[in-house]
Design a protein around this nucleic acid. Structure first.
Length: 486
RNA sequence: GGCCCCAUAGACUAAUGGUUAGGUCACCAGCCUUUCACGCUGGCAGUAGCGGUUCGAAUCCGCUUGGGGUCACCA
């Protein structure tokens, strides 16, 4: 049987980092086994719908490079893939469940249920008490039919069998056992005619021929209910794999309270999609013991669901940044420059040639974390320094600096080869001829040309800026200095 | 609190009965140097605890402790 897995988010906001990891593992699993990856939208809670959430979700998946084979906007043989468009299906199957005696109708109001829970003296576990409440079992068939026909609102509840052990074999955790005494008579169909997650996901996974259900650990406690449903329907069960949670630094479930969790926020911050995916993939699993950088193909190739860790993984920003930096270092400048264009444009720093910008990128790629830092960090590559670091100036500018500089400036003026190697040789020859050291002149030059104490190699910087610009800046500085403006 | 899941350094992980317990991030030191970085070298630091099984346990079993998840007409 060919592998079919699904990612089934509910459209209640943006794609969560944990959701992306779940989607990614499903994707890796599907691709590894040459199977199919299905996207299904679970929008059965009408009260939590968020406008454009589906588009957002798909957009984030797309950014991450996770492509689905079947789903909204793509179609497939098992659609529709949006649960609100499958209501008649759930109705049909819920009635089937009722006919089999595996579920019953109930008429309690929210208040009555709340009261029942309060009545329960134990602070342990308050199950729905099917023997004392207003439902098909206490009212009888006839009364039930009358109530339904008269338009009373009602739900369908799962009739959980008493005191039996439900067992399933989790692909990641192994054998899991739960006594049905611990399982509530879960609502399957809500009074608004929509199914709950429990019914919908079982019906859909069955009809969509899902072979492995790979989802977050938060679903582990409700899996026995799903097992009961498969058994009531008489269907084959898929295999289950419950992924460890992604955690905040304090080890609680990764949440918005402790920083950003929306995938699109990371995209906006400037993380590379491939670096981000690489990082996320390694939260809970690693294909080897001596590597951190993997292409998506390599991840697919080596993915093994049974090797996924059981314990939760803290989402560590520092390592994410490091990962991003690894990608920044090796990406071709032709790709990076495309990211730089819109950034410069937004700062009204336009008019630079592509080649020039690529040179700037190559000068700074090992000194920044994100391309968006360039207008700030490398501002002087786009305009004259404007101001000069006071401490740097005080430290490296001497009484005789100008005298030393003027003949050198003249040499620069007469030099046509502004390659960094030549500038280096030329400068070195001159300065050592005076019995001085390179650093005694390099810092003043850096100051005059960049205004900053930190930057790329000085002669490399001069090469990229070009002869004309360098000479102009030195002249400007000398003029300021001589007129005591600085 | 009941139930379920989990447990290798501060963080991510490798090692599926035999390793001096390996790698990465972070941190620290040194080197490189033209500043800042990068890079290189080295260092700090771990099998939660206690029993058991075994010639041999991070690995298997039990208990304890700790952490997490979940207990809705939400997913």
């Amino acid at each position: 049987m060919s592998v079919r897995v699904r990612f089934a988010p509910s459209p209640t906001g943006f794609l969560h980092v944990g959701g992306l990891r779940t989607a990614l593992y499903n994707y890796l699993f599907a691709k590894h086994h040459k199977g199919r990856f299905v996207l299904r939208i679970e929008d059965t809670d009408r009260t939590r719908l968020v406008e454009n959430a589906v588009e957002n979700l798909i957009g984030s998946l797309h950014w991450a490079g996770i492509d689905y084979d079947e789903g909204p906007g793509k179609g497939g043989d098992y659609g529709p893939y949006i649960q609100s468009e499958r209501l008649d299906i759930y109705k049909e199957y819920s009635e089937m469940l009722h006919e089999k005696g595996a579920a019953y109708y109930a008429f309690d109001t929210a208040e009555e249920i709340e009261e029942m829970r309060k009545r329960e003296p134990s602070e342990q576990f308050t199950k729905y008490d099917r023997t004392s409440m207003k439902n098909e079992l206490t009212l009888g068939e006839e009364e039930t039919r009358k109530l339904i026909e008269s338009g009373s609102s009602y739900v369908l509840r799962l009739k959980v069998p008493g005191n039996t052990i439900v067992v399933f074999d989790d692909l990641i955790r192994g054998k899991v056992e739960v006594n049905t005494a611990e399982i509530d008579d879960q609502v399957l169909m809500k009074s608004d005619g929509y199914p709950t997650y429990h019914l919908a996901n079982v019906v859909d996974d069955h009809l969509m021929k899902i072979t492995q259900v790979i989802r977050g650990e938060e679903w582990l406690p409700s899996t026995p209910k799903h097992i009961l449903l498969y058994e009531a329907f008489g269907w084959d069960k898929p295999k289950f794999a419950h992924l460890p949670l992604l955690l905040n630094p304090d080890k609680t479930k990764l949440s918005k309270r402790q920083g950003s969790v929306a995938v699109e926020d990371f995209a906006k911050e400037g993380y590379f999609n491939d670096a981000f995916v690489n990082f996320i993939a390694l939260l809970g699993w690693n294909p080897s013991s001596d590597r951190e950088i993997y292409s998506i193909e390599e991840l697919i190739d080596s993915f093994d669901i049974e090797k996924v860790n059981k314990g939760g993984a803290v989402f560590d920003r520092a390592k994410l940044e490091w990962m991003n930096f690894q990608y920044l270092k090796q990406k071709p400048s032709s790709e990076l420059v495309e990211l730089l264009f819109p950034i410069l444009e937004s700062k009204a720093m336009t008019g630079f040639a592509k080649d020039y910008l690529e040179n700037v990128i190559n000068l700074f790629r090992e000194r920044i974390k994100f391309i968006k830092e360039l207008p700030e960090t490398a501002g002087y590559m786009f305009h004259s320094p404007g101001d000069y670091e006071k401490d740097y100036l005080d430290k490296h500018w001497r009484e005789n600096t100008i005298e030393i500089l003027k003949p050198l400036l003249e040499k620069y003026r007469q030099e046509n080869d502004f390659s960094h190697t030549n500038l280096y040789e030329l400068t070195k020859t001159y300065i050592e001829g005076l019995g001085m050291k390179m650093k005694e002149i390099i810092h003043p030059i850096r100051l005059m040309i960049t205004g900053k104490s930190a930057g790329a190699g000085m002669f490399e910087t001069m090469e990229v800026l070009g002869k004309q610009e360098c000479i102009k800046r030195i002249e400007e500085f000398i003029k300021l200095k001589e007129s005591k403006m600085i």
